[in-house]
Each structure stands twice: as structure tokens, then as C-alpha cells.
């Protein structure tokens, strides 16, 4: 069936309107640091149990891990901040995530079943919150990551109000 007809027209999805909270960058840096420290603890524990002759194999591995850590703490948060966007319009939720890859998710509000707000320990320090919207499909949850805490509350309240009015979730 022709996807060839009507060529022209839009060739991609646009980016959602809103950026996440600027404090998200710092949160991602801290998150990367914590992850890095844990990685090194594990690596050194393993290292201390291995015979010395393995050292020359582990050298390049350690360098690789260090480069990855560095990218995780410096590059990743900045790129992620530029690429992560979200939007709640009158009839749909639209989010874009990922820093190397890109994930664009769309769900009509009429299909939304639940709206959750999640604040992790480090996220609370920076006044951030994730809002997750689920539909009847396990493949379809949409997370709006690292919103300002009060923005998140407002979005949650709005979504709860709107989805409470509609019925029929196409199960």
C-alpha cells in the first residue's frame, strides 16, 4: 500500500515545546559521579583479587572506563539537557528523551490511565520530579523527566483532571 503517494508533507516529528528544569544538568552530573564512584569501587575490588599478570590486560580497560566516566559527567548532561523535551497539549502528551539515541513518545490524553509523580533522593535535593503517564499498553508509559517540582505538581493535577473526564481506554 503506497507510502510513496503524498510524498512531500512532514518528514519527521517536531521537538516538544518545553525544556526540562535547568537544575537537571546538575542532577545528571551528580548522578554520573555517583555511578562512576560505584563503578570504580567494583573495579578495584575485582582488581585486588586478580593475579598481577592480568595487569596489562586491565590497563586499557581502566582507561576506557575512565573515558566513559568523564563523558558521563561532562558531555552527557549537557547534550541530554538540549535533547530532552516535553509537552502536554490539549489532547496529548508528547516527550522526547535520550542523548545518543532519541525516543519520541506520543499518547492521546483520552488513552491515559494513570499519572504518577516520582522524586528520588538526589532529585529532591535539586527540587526535581519525574511525571510518568501510563496507558493500557505496557510499552507506552511516557516519562517527563526532571521537571521543576512545582511544574510537575501542576502537570500532574492538570492531567488527572483532564483524564478523569474522558472514558474508554481502547483495551
Amino acid at each position: 500500500m503506497g507510502t510513496g503517494e503524498r510524498s512531500g508533507g512532514p518528514t519527521a516529528l517536531r521537538e516538544p515545546a518545553h525544556r526540562v528544569s535547568p537544575r537537571a544538568v546538575r542532577y545528571w552530573v551528580v548522578n554520573g559521579l555517583v555511578g562512576g564512584v560505584l563503578t570504580w569501587v567494583v573495579l578495584f575490588t575485582i582488581y585486588s583479587f586478580l593475579p598481577d599478570s592480568w595487569g596489562r590486560w586491565l590497563g586499557p580497560l581502566f582507561v576506557l572506563v575512565m573515558v566513559a566516566n568523564l563523558a558521563d559527567v561532562t558531555l552527557e548532561p549537557i547534550v541530554r539537557y538540549r535533547r530532552t523535551r516535553w509537552e502536554v497539549t490539549g489532547d496529548k502528551v508528547f516527550a522526547q528523551t535520550g542523548w545518543l539515541s532519541r525516543d519520541q513518545r506520543i499518547a492521546p490524553l483520552s488513552r491515559v490511565q494513570t499519572v504518577d509523580t516520582h522524586r528520588g533522593a538526589i532529585m529532591r535535593l535539586y527540587g526535581l520530579a519525574n511525571v510518568t503517564v501510563t496507558t493500557a499498553s505496557a510499552a507506552g508509559p511516557i516519562t517527563l523527566p526532571c521537571l521543576d517540582s512545582d511544574v510537575a505538581d501542576r502537570v500532574t493535577a492538570d492531567l488527572a483532571r483532564i483524564t478523569g473526564q474522558t472514558r474508554g481506554d481502547a483495551t
Binding site: S101, R102, D103, T135, A136, A139
Partner: peptide, 25 residues
């Protein structure tokens, strides 16, 4: 169909490809 996901991995972005997912119950 109750939603769409357009996923592009790093390599797919370079080739202008994507995995298109139709979500359903």
C-alpha cells in the same frame, strides 16, 4: 492503537531510520 513511539538509535539517526512502535492494549 493507543500511542506511538519513534525510537532512533545513534546509528539509526545517522541513516535516517527509526523503529516505529504502535502501542496497544
Amino acid at each position: 492503537v493507543i500511542g506511538w513511539v519513534v525510537h532512533q538509535s545513534f546509528f539509526q539517526r545517522r541513516r535516517g531510520l527509526c523503529h516505529l512502535t504502535a502501542t496497544t492494549a
